[in-house]
Amino acid sequence: MHGKPDIVLPKYKTVIFIHGCFWHGHEGCRYYVVPKTRTEWWLNKINTNINNDLQYGKALELRGWKVLVVWECDLKGVDKAGFLTSIIAALKNNEEKPI
């Protein structure tokens, strides 16, 4: 398995990555703010994470896996169990974009 998916659903050949908005550079998100100290170091770290995310996602898709990304900010104030249930229900119905 490429990367470290947070959730693996082998029955649906689907992996789910839950990305922290800061660590994965969620553009336009209020939780992603570039630190004012050691800025170059942080940008290098975050950009490396972004590039790794893209590579892992492509490698998994080439192996026939569906890759879903859920951002930390999307889960704020959401019933997490219900959210996962809705993803699984969408996968059962073979929807293209379950979330």
Results as ranks from 00 to 15, higher is better:
His26Val: 15
Leu9Phe: 08
Leu60Ile: 01
Tyr31Arg: 15
Arg63Ser: 08
Ala59Ser: 04
Asn47Pro: 08
Asn47Met: 10
Glu95Asp: 12
Ile46Gly: 11
Phe17Thr: 09
Ile87Lys: 00
Pro10Thr: 04
Thr48Trp: 02
Ile88Val: 11
Trp65Arg: 06
Val78Ile: 09
Val69Asp: 05
Gly3His: 05
Glu95Ala: 11
Lys66Cys: 04
Trp65Cys: 05
Ile16Val: 10
Gly57Asn: 01
Ile18Arg: 03
Arg38Leu: 15
Phe83Pro: 06
Glu95Tyr: 03
Glu96Phe: 01
Trp65Glu: 00
Met1Gly: 10
Trp42Asn: 12
Cys73Gln: 11
Asp79Tyr: 00
Tyr32Val: 14
Gly77Asn: 04
Tyr31Gly: 12
Leu91Lys: 06
Met1Lys: 08
Val69Ile: 06
His19Asn: 15
Thr37Phe: 11
Glu61Ser: 02
Ile88Pro: 01
Gly25Ala: 13
Trp42His: 13
His2Phe: 07
Arg30Ile: 09
Asn52Gln: 08
Asn49Trp: 00
Trp71Met: 12
Gly64Ala: 12
Ala59His: 02
Lys13Gly: 02
Leu60Met: 03
Cys29Thr: 09
Asn94Glu: 12
Ala81His: 09
Trp42Gly: 13
Leu84Lys: 03
Thr14Cys: 04
Val33Tyr: 07
Trp42Met: 14
Gly64Lys: 04
Val78Tyr: 00
Gln55Tyr: 09
Cys73Glu: 14
Ile50Lys: 10
Lys92Gly: 08
Leu54Ala: 13
Lys92Pro: 11
Arg30Val: 09
Lys13His: 02
Gln55Pro: 07
Lys97Gln: 11
Lys45Ser: 10
Tyr32Gln: 15
Glu40Met: 11
Ala81Lys: 10
Asp53Val: 03
Lys66Thr: 03
Asp74Ala: 04
Ala89Met: 02
His19Val: 14
Asn47Arg: 13
Val67Tyr: 05
Asp74Tyr: 05
Lys45Met: 12
Ala90Cys: 08
Trp71Ala: 11
Tyr56Lys: 06
Gly64Asp: 07
Val15Ser: 03
Gly25Asp: 09
Val67Ile: 01
Trp65Asn: 03
Ile46Arg: 03
Asn52Cys: 09
Glu40Ala: 15
Asp6Tyr: 08
Ile46Cys: 06
